[in-house]
Design a protein around this nucleic acid. Structure first.
Length: 699
RNA sequence: GGGCGGAUAGCUCAGCGGUAGAGCGGCGCCUUUACACGGCGCGGGCCGGGGGUUCGAAUCCCUCUCCGCCCACCA
């Protein structure tokens, strides 16, 4: 028995307990025990690109409380800890810290070392992808140490011997093995197609990373001439895409345009002839009831273009600027090529915004603008980390099939116990709303590479239809620094040789494998069988559509399984003004000083009093209460162990009615708390226990 | 536009069919061994509005209002 201290000194107690837990190894998972005796947790790997805030302490404590309950019931707990140091967040941070940028074409330099001491005006240094990734490792290792200090201080009962990082060798191997399996099954495929593209980061992004933002815009009414009919006026918010117009559409039952269907309209300025077609997606009530379809203004344009024999007139380049375009032969065929080319010359190279201003001038001069632009506010799609609207740009990307699995994924979601149960609706909402497969390739550097090369023909052009897939035993592999089987490094990027796939995978392609990474799939299937499906996935609600969803996808595609039986969804921490706490708002509270001020027990008490899934206001008052409770417990324990330490252990010897009533009450509390914990409702358990404890002390 | 949560004391929240609860804050009282890193007590609420079910509704049903979130629309 640990001696009861005379006074409340949280820092000392926390240190001593932490050391003792470490020494005794009580958080270690015992691989010899059966699956039935095991409680496996799919711990969230925290992004180590910044600092912890109190919300992390809040949600991790809630999970820890459940894990500790399971351990107390005798379960062999598997509670790993991981770090997410893969992806754009890390990449941006490393660029800032070391002033470096990766150049995938550069060769690895083993002697190169990053430095922080560089002049402020020094140019950005370009290094090989491998050197860059090594620099990422230096930064994230420091962050991980700082995070570990907080977790140990707060008493997180994870097994520190199980640490992994999403960019480490094991995760890269698992992630690449996952890709191999999906490619072999035909679930991963590559396609050259219009893809959601971020023009600042110059990478494709997936549906899950898109968010809407309200932005000012304007309707521009533009007059198109029509052969044998009066002109029509279309309404558009993207006049700069006029040259990309491939059709004009109205609703099939819209009487105003009945005689127009099948005829040809002619765009102003560029004099390109486009068909007038009926389409259900045109809303007679909106704008002028007739609209232009461009390649590509929005998702509806992509869908209209797809499956029809219409040309591709891509105007916007990968950098978001107007590309060079020739109004020569098809697809930019113009009835007045000279005039079209002159108009385009003024737009080429401009950003979307600049081009929009310019074309309004041009339209006005050509008397093709009807009235003035009408200002509106509309929702525009952005990459969640981006600062300019997304574009659709045709590029070659790797995808994972989702749409054909929708029904199966809904059914998998129903096999998971969502806690609280209403969180399932968010998952189902998301799955039902899926409109594209999962684009898993990113044109970035820090991440898991695709274990793929492409043969080059005699002209040095890659043949994407015959990818060379790495052998499983060679993983992890970086195709930019290793040659494929049957080739030598000298043949890299040479005609008749090979070229490595330059892309990396979406960070979620790896994060979606956290249960498999921790369980050892697919290399240690005995261990995997003892841990998978796992019991609990703790996570926050805003990443149900990403992390939870993709994890369910991978478990289904690989093994036709659910990844875990329970999804324990935590809420956010709101600042006292009820705004979400986030770094960008500058209202973040960091946990360490709270731990020092109030003690871990107090911070844990506050965390555990937040109900599952519920957003909770940051409240130091609750921490004071927690601190007081801890003190009260210490003192009550001193009293009980001192004054009543020799009480009979055999309950049948307790005969006084008062004592028996107290024990009966206690029995009820234990039963209620046990039931609450089994239902993942730690907050109820805390409330019942606390209430009983105070009445016990009072009486 | 669809979905999900929430509205209970000044504040943060619990209760979810049987006489309105806790903590904080406010006010008052109490220090010679469990606890001043404390303890005890007092005030304070037409349980968002309206309707219904019931012997009985904060609790169940319908409806409205407001707050938050998720998803969709984006010509």
């Amino acid at each position: 028995m640990t001696e009861i201290p005379q006074s409340y000194d949280p820092a000392k107690a926390e240190r001593e307990w932490s050391e003792r837990w470490e020494r005794d190894g009580i958080f270690r998972w015992d691989p010899t025990r059966s699956r039935a005796e095991t409680f496996a947790v799919d711990t969230p790997p925290l992004t180590v690109s910044g600092s912890l805030h109190i919300g992390h302490a809040f949600s991790f404590t809630q999970a820890d409380v459940i894990v500790r309950y399971q351990r107390m019931t005798g379960k062999n707990t598997f509670y790993p800890i991981g770090w997410d140091d893969n992806g754009l967040a890390t990449e941006r941070r490393v660029q800032n810290v070391f002033g470096i940028r990766p150049d995938p074409r550069k060769a690895y330099d083993p002697a190169w070392q990053p430095t922080r001491e560089r002049p402020k005006d020094a140019p950005v240094e370009e290094v090989s992808r491998r050197n860059f990734v090594e620099a990422c490792g230096l930064v994230t290792a420091e962050d991980e140490r700082a995070f570990e200090d907080v977790w140990r201080r707060i008493g997180l009962s994870v097994d520190w011997t199980t640490q992994y990082a999403t960019i480490d060798e094991r995760c890269r191997r698992t992630s690449q093995l996952s890709f191999l399996d999906l490619e072999r099954k035909g679930e991963a495929y590559q396609k050259f197609a219009p893809t959601v593209w971020d023009v600042d980061d110059r990478t494709a992004v997936a549906q899950a990373e898109i968010e809407d933002r309200e932005l000012p815009g304007a309707y521009h009414d533009i007059r198109f001439s029509v052969d044998g009919e009066p002109p029509i006026t279309i309404s558009t918010t993207r006049p700069e895409l006029l040259a990309a117009c491939i059709a004009v559409v109205a609703h099939p039952r819209d009487e105003r345009f009945r005689t127009y269907f099948g005829k040809t309209a002619r765009t102003p300025l560029f004099h390109v002839r486009v068909p007038i077609l009926p389409s259900e997606h045109a809303d007679p009530e909106k704008g002028t009831g007739i609209l232009m379809v461009c390649t590509f203004g929005d998702q509806a344009d992509v869908e209209f273009w797809r499956g029809r024999e219409l040309p591709l007139r891509q105007l916007i380049g990968l950098d978001g600027r107007m590309r060079p375009v020739r109004f020569g032969p098809s697809p930019f065929e113009s009835a007045e090529p000279g005039e079209a080319q002159a108009a385009w010359a003024e737009l080429e190279g401009k950003t979307v915004k600049q081009a929009q201003a310019k074309i309004v001038e041009q339209l006005r001069a050509a008397d093709a603008l009807v009235g003035e632009p009408r200002a509106i506010v509309h929702a525009v799609k952005f990459y969640e980390r981006g600062s300019r609207p997304l574009e659709f740009v045709p590029t070659r990307q790797w995808f994972v099939r989702l749409l054909v699995h929708k029904q199966a994924l809904l059914e998998q979601g129903r096999k998971v116990e969502w806690r609280p149960a209403y969180m399932r609706a968010r998952y189902e909402n998301w799955v039902e709303g899926l409109n594209q497969d999962w684009c898993i390739s990113r044109q970035r550097y820090s991440g898991v590479p695709f274990p793929v090369w492409y043969p080059l023909d005699a002209d040095g052009a890659p043949d994407h239809s015959r990818p060379i897939i790495a052998a499983p035993e060679s993983l992890p592999v970086d195709p930019l620094s290793a040659a494929p089987p049957g080739y030598t490094e000298a043949q890299r990027d040479r005609p008749g040789g090979f070229s490595g796939d330059p892309d990396v995978m979406d960070t979620w392609a790896t994060s979606s494998l956290t249960p498999q990474i921790a369980s050892g799939w697919p290399l240690d299937m005995d261990r995997h069988a003892k841990l998978f499906p796992m019991d609990m996935r703790p996570q926050a609600h805003e990443i149900i559509r990403t992390w939870a969803f993709y994890t369910i996808v991978k478990a289904w595609l690989h093994e036709r399984e659910i990844p875990w039986r329970n999804a324990a969804i935590s809420g956010w921490i709101l600042d006292p003004d009820r705004k979400k706490m986030s770094k960008s708002k500058g209202n973040v509270v960091t946990p360490m000083h709270l731990l020092e001020q109030y003690g871990s027990d107090a911070v844990r008490y506050w965390s555990a009093s937040g109900r599952p899934g519920t957003d909770t206001a940051f409240d130091e008052g609750q921490m004071k209460v927690g601190r007081r409770l801890a003190i009260k417990m210490l003192n009550a324990s001193k009293f009980v162990l001192g004054a009543a330490g020799d009480a009979p252990a055999d309950l049948s010897l307790v005969t006084r009615p008062l004592d028996r009533a107290m024990l009966a009450d206690l029995g009820g509390v234990v039963a209620e708390c046990t039931a609450a914990f089994d239902a993942y409702d730690y907050a109820r358990s805390l409330e019942r226990t606390e209430r009983f404890f105070w009445s016990f002390c009072d009486d």
